[in-house]
Design a protein around this nucleic acid. Structure first.
Lengths: 124, 124, 124, 124
DNA sequence: GTGGTCTAGACCACA
DNA sequence: GTGGTCTAGACCACT
């Protein structure tokens, strides 16, 4: 995994794990790698790895049991709710940006269609 | 104007001016406020204001004429091209995010429709 | 029983048993569950269960007889004294906190009254 | 200031500043010491000092402006609300503890009165 | 100067 | 082994 030097490493790793959790690639209740292991996997400092779990725990995506490790929340409903809220947030941000550019929701729909088609033609 | 503490102030002010220019609220060729005035308007440090124009100039959106001030580019085609590229970039980023969340372009279209409807019901 | 991740599990279980003993729900002289049983009941590690009895024993609330098990102290006076000291400690801590918040003992009495009323209205 | 080795230093310093803020000894909008200064004042590491402000900011007690420093929130209502919620929390915790000890809210009121009298006789 | 981040390495309590 | 905390020192971008 490569890191964008402009955004904190802990945020990038957290973003990655967040996706793994809300999409089910990391199962609810599953044990996450230990801080030390996470540090090794992403070639970061253990302190930075701890910061990652600190963030995800604050979002309610995982919980920590001292001496045992950190675990994905078992609350499937919460995971799905977060997944949807992330999607909604993206949609709203998109519409807001287009609006500031002087484009209507109708324009927005058209642009999404075009962009999707472009993607498809590249990965048919 | 409120500032997001996570992103540099100069980037936020630059983003704001960029929109004004690209949408025509600031006319092509129009004189922009002096660095000192910009600092007063946005309650920022003059150094920060200078950084703003430095950024916008690098993007070709404005140019500085010594002793006269800073002016929006008169190249209407460039302004419109930037406007469209910003919109396309937003659309692609949106689709990419939804894809990472396990949602298809079809889902994306649906979410945009829902979000637009929500906005409409709030600002009918 | 749920565990507060901020305080050691052994302390939380010990606190629970302490209350059972001091209020008579566990009778003086009564045999306590074996370390292994305690571990099962609270879903904790046997080492942690041992730590619990180690703590309670140090407080004089129970004693271990090798080969027989661990027993609540038969000293009713000591149990009652500990119960009162726990209550007094709570009261003093409460007053101290309110004082640091700039509230007088009079305010404290009023807040206890209000809180008690709130509790009553929920569990009348 | 002396530190209780059982609780994190950052939590203790945060608790101290929290009281200063909600009681008005630190005024709303006032600039807090820089991270480096805080570290010097309390003889702690700058990183630990940063952790303190990170915590207080998450509670909405202060906000940080990059390059400028950290400032007590100017929202007096919020400060007062937090002060009252801290007091209420203390009262509820107190009643809950006494309840678990088998003592009624009436007993609680009596104990507060006694404890207050004891304090008074020591600091008349 | 100010905060934000990261690294390196250490110690500790908990399970 | 696991997380939690702390220190020391460094670099960076922002103001």
């Amino acid at each position: 995994m490569e890191f964008d030097p402009m955004t904190p490493i802990w945020a990038q790793v957290a973003g990655h794990l967040r996706l793994e959790m809300v999409t089910g690639r990391l199962q609810p209740g599953e044990k996450l790698p230990s801080g030390r292991d996470l540090a090794l996997q992403f070639a970061i400092n253990p302190n930075t790895a701890a910061r990652v779990y600190q963030e995800l725990e604050a979002e309610g995506l995982c919980s920590t049991r001292r001496g045992l490790g950190t675990f994905v929340t078992a609350d499937r409903a919460r995971l799905e709710a977060i997944r949807l809220s992330l999607a909604r947030e993206a949609a709203e941000q998109f519409l807001s940006r287009l609006d500031k550019l002087g484009l209507s929701p109708g324009d927005a729909l058209r642009m999404v269609g075009e962009a999707a088609a472009t993607e498809d033609s590249q990965h048919p």
